[in-house]
Design a protein around this nucleic acid. Structure first.
Lengths: 166, 166
DNA sequence: GATTATTTACTCGGATAGGATGTGTCCGAGTGGCTTAGG
DNA sequence: CCTAAGCCACTCGGACACATCCTATCCGAGTAAATAATC
């Protein structure tokens, strides 16, 4: 029942993309290496984000990945749902309509009280995730830098030449 | 990432147990048949609830299952967590500490902003589930009866003799 | 008739397969930049 | 020197294995009731 590990990857990757200057792009394998992740599987997660219209892929020799929309228009929920195939946490199979004592289907109009609670919790979960955008994450990330990481990142980017289109 | 189907089973089963008179018990296979579920796998879900101290199992010839605690002391969250092995939805593997640009571990004190958002959403999800107890579910279930189900249930119980210890 | 030992039917619980989903890897199609030949 | 064609390196995307967890099933250990034997 746990979220796929690619959710964490995708969130960190999107945050990194949001930190890049406008018009810049970075290859998927470089983004994976930067985060210490397996490039092959990481690219699969990126594919889902591309399919969802969150990330844009530039093909060709100096291609790479970039955000497809402004960071304000991408919420954490968008990313999570894209990577989890838009599935809800709880699924109601209407077992109350099964069994020897069930009534005719016409008598079941409203969802049962159990499904109501579960869906309410689900909605609250999504609400929190929808409240935070990539721009918010970028803002707090900038406000709370980790010692030396920014410098090391700049050096690594210029050293490897992973950043294109600047 | 979806919750196990046994979550729905366990919730409906616990609600059914909460509807029973004090001191009564019902065999697991009868509870499964009543809900139209596969008895063998259903019993596994019940085992988890027994291990969690939510359901009590009475052994022997006229044994069965019953709630181990008053319905007020069992929340929906308790049941869900028992069936999902107490796991959190999101798991942070601290990938920010990996990769070529990461700083020394001593510099990572607070959780990262991504983990904060995810855990906050997780907490809200749990909060909603913790707010509702089995007693609440029973109350609303009694207030919104489905046409004919109560009568059919009483008839089925006396016909099969599934209810013991009354 | 009451008590006790035995049988028996029925319960839960764990050990054991099968299937779906998440994880991991690889290679090919396609594109844009670089090289090079020509004007 | 400038232009244009061809080559090449590099990109993403999908096709292909492996592992883990969820799903499903069965059978055995153990218990309490029912039964039978005894006092």
């Amino acid at each position: 029942m746990q979220l796929s590990e690619t959710v964490e990857w995708g969130l960190h990757a999107c945050l990194a993309l949001a930190m890049m200057p406008e018009g810049a792009r970075i290859p998927a394998h470089a983004l994976a290496e930067y985060h210490g992740l397996k490039p092959s599987y990481f690219s699969k997660a990126m594919q889902k984000l591309v399919a969802a219209g969150i990330v844009r892929s530039i093909e060709g020799r100096s291609g790479g990945l970039a955000l497809a929309r402004p960071a304000d228009d991408v919420s954490v929920l968008h990313i999570v749902m894209a990577l989890e195939d838009q599935k809800t946490l709880f699924r109601c199979t209407e077992i109350r309509q099964k069994g020897p004592c069930a009534a005719a289907p016409k008598h079941y109009t409203a969802p049962c009280n159990i499904a109501r609670v579960m869906h309410k919790a689900d909605a609250e979960w999504r609400r929190v995730l929808a409240e935070t955008s990539l721009a918010d994450l970028r803002k707090s990330a900038v406000a709370e830098p980790i010692f030396g990481v920014n410098e090391a990142t700049q050096a690594w980017l210029s050293e490897t030449g992973a950043l294109r289109g600047v």
